[in-house]
Structure formats: C-alpha cells, structure tokens
C-alpha cells in the first residue's frame, strides 16, 4: 500500500492488476515503429460525442477449438474446428449473414499417415517438418490453427462482401488480407497490443490516450500491406491499466483523412454500448461479442 501511494505521489500511472490483454507471450511483444500520416508529431484528437453508424453494420469474428486426439509415436495428432461468422445489425437486432466451418486433422506427415484416411468432412493438414518435439509440434498446431482461422475469416468476409456492401467491423487486423486492406467499408479492431507502433515519449503519449480521444493516424508496418491505423480509447483508463479500453483501428488507405478517422472513431465509440461483459469488456464491441456468442452456441 505504501508503494502504491508512493507511485501515485511520483505522478506515475497506477494499475489495478495485470492487463487483461497481456497474453504473456513476451517473445511476441515487439515495437515496430510506425509512420505517422496525419500530424508531424504524435498527437491526440478529441472526438466529442459518439455518433452511431446510420446504416446497417456487420461484425465478423472467428473461433477455433482444438482437441488433441493422441500421438503417433511421439508426434501429436489434433483435431481443430474453425468457425467464422458475420452477423449483421439492422435496426438494433442481429441476424447471422454468413457462417463458415472447417475441421482439420493436424499433425506431421508420418503421424497423419499412421492415422490413415481422414474421416468424412475432415481435412488433413500437414505440419512443416523439423526436429521432432511434442511441445514444438503442439505450438505449431496452434500457429497453424491461427492461420487457417484467419483464412476462414477472410473467406467469410469475402462471402459477405459478395452480397453486401455495408460496413463490416472485423475483430483483428486488416493488413493480413489484400482485399480487406483496400476495402473502404471495412474496419479492423485490434484489441491486443503485443506489437506497439511507437517507443519513448510517443509510446507514453500513445498509451496515456484520454477517453474519447484518438491518436494521430499512422501506417503501422511500413513496407507491408498499407493500411491506416490509429489508437482509440473507449473507456477511461486511469486507476485501471494503460491498456484499459484501448484499441487500434485499421482502415483502408482511402479512409486516411482526419474527417474519416474522426467519423469512424465516433461510430466505434458508440459501439461500446451495450457493454459486452466478460474479461475483455473494455475493448470487445458488443457486435463482435454477439458473433462470439453465436459461434460458441452453434
């Protein structure tokens, strides 16, 4: 308690525990300097009142479920079920517009050969060969599952876009998809902050962003697929954690104007409500939450 008082007295920002966004893959935590696109130096922009989207908006998310079936010798074989869905909101109510599902049997080639013919509806997917270590293989299975989940989400987004030209809010980054990175009606919401775009004083300003403010927009990873991004503080963070209520928004370069950034930020601010609940309630938009609920319940 005395330490906490001292911390406050020194003007440091107190925290109320470990950040919920911290997944503790400290090897993934990196700073990749971004290129500012809006201001000469990083600034904060007040947004004022939130203004909801005035037209139907859809939310996309995916889930994965892994089940370790067993080992062929020492090589693990896992079943991974991937789901993705787009739920569209019309007059406040959600309906499912797109849903995708795939099931994979993952393992080394030798392990899959030992398993024999995969059962109907299950696609076999080989892990890259390398030194055999069960833990390494399991980590590879997880990475592969993440990748195929990303692919399935992109597939769901494409399917939605074929039938609907409205706003699509995606739980995650746009830069992984050439199509979405150029989609002027797509918004990526990045909740995790293992990759940070600034360091030093800019990082402090970035992470001390006041509520209902956005940062200057920037290009997150120069040289990669170009998108425009900025940070947005959805809820007051002081007294909680630097990351509380902080999300990174990604849009296509076509939306890279201050007016568009403000308008999109205000619309996403409105999506804070209703509160989604759960450990990520401060960053998880309710629309995305309903997609997750749907995928879990299906």
């Amino acid at each position: 308690m005395r330490c906490r008082k001292r911390l406050i007295a020194t003007g440091m920002a107190p925290a109320d525990g470990l950040p919920a966004s911290l997944t503790l893959h400290d090897d993934d935590a990196v700073i990749r300097p971004a290129r500012l696109l809006e201001d000469p130096t990083l600034r904060t922009h007040a947004l004022g009142e939130s203004v909801p989207f005035d037209e139907p908006v859809a939310f996309l998310d995916g889930t994965q479920r892994m089940e370790l079936l067993g080992y062929a010798g020492t090589a693990p074989v896992a079943l991974v079920e991937i789901r993705a869905a787009v739920r569209q909101r019309v007059r406040g109510l959600f309906t499912t517009a797109i849903r995708e599902r795939q099931v994979y049997l993952l393992g080394r080639r030798s392990a899959l050969a030992a398993f024999g013919e995969p059962v109907e509806g299950v696609e076999a997917l080989e892990l890259p060969e390398g030194p055999a270590h069960p833990f390494r293989d399991l980590a590879e299975i997880r990475r592969t599952a993440d990748r195929v989940r990303g692919n399935l989400e992109l597939s769901a987004a494409d399917a939605f876009r074929r039938v609907n030209a409205g706003w699509l809010v995606i739980d995650g980054s746009l830069s992984g998809s050439p199509t979405l990175a150029e989609d002027s009606r797509a918004i990526g919401i990045v909740k995790g902050h293992t990759t940070l775009p600034f360091d030093g004083a800019d990082l402090e300003q970035y992470l001390h962003l006041p509520p209902a403010h956005r940062s200057s927009f920037f290009e997150p990873t120069p040289g990669y697929r170009p998108v425009v991004a900025w940070a947005l503080r959805l809820w007051p963070w002081e007294g909680r954690d630097l990351f509380h209520g902080l999300v990174r928004l990604e849009v296509a370069p076509a939306n890279g104007t201050p007016e568009r950034a403000d308008a999109i930020s205000r619309a996403i601010m409105a999506e804070r409500l209703p509160v989604s609940g759960g450990p990520q309630w401060d960053r998880l938009l309710y629309g995305t939450h309903t997609v997750q609920q749907y995928l879990r319940a299906e």
């Binding site: 909101r89 406040g92 959600f94 409105a270 999506e271 409500l273 309710y286 629309g287």
Partner: peptide, 16 residues
C-alpha cells in the same frame, strides 16, 4: 455502460 445516467442515449445494438 450508461455512465450512471439512466437518460444516456440508447445503444445502437439491442442486447441479445
């Protein structure tokens, strides 16, 4: 969510 204000504007999404 309502910032303690019952008169706060309605959310764009109706809860499930």
């Amino acid at each position: 969510g309502a910032d303690g204000d019952p008169a706060s504007p309605p959310a764009p999404s109706a809860r499930s």
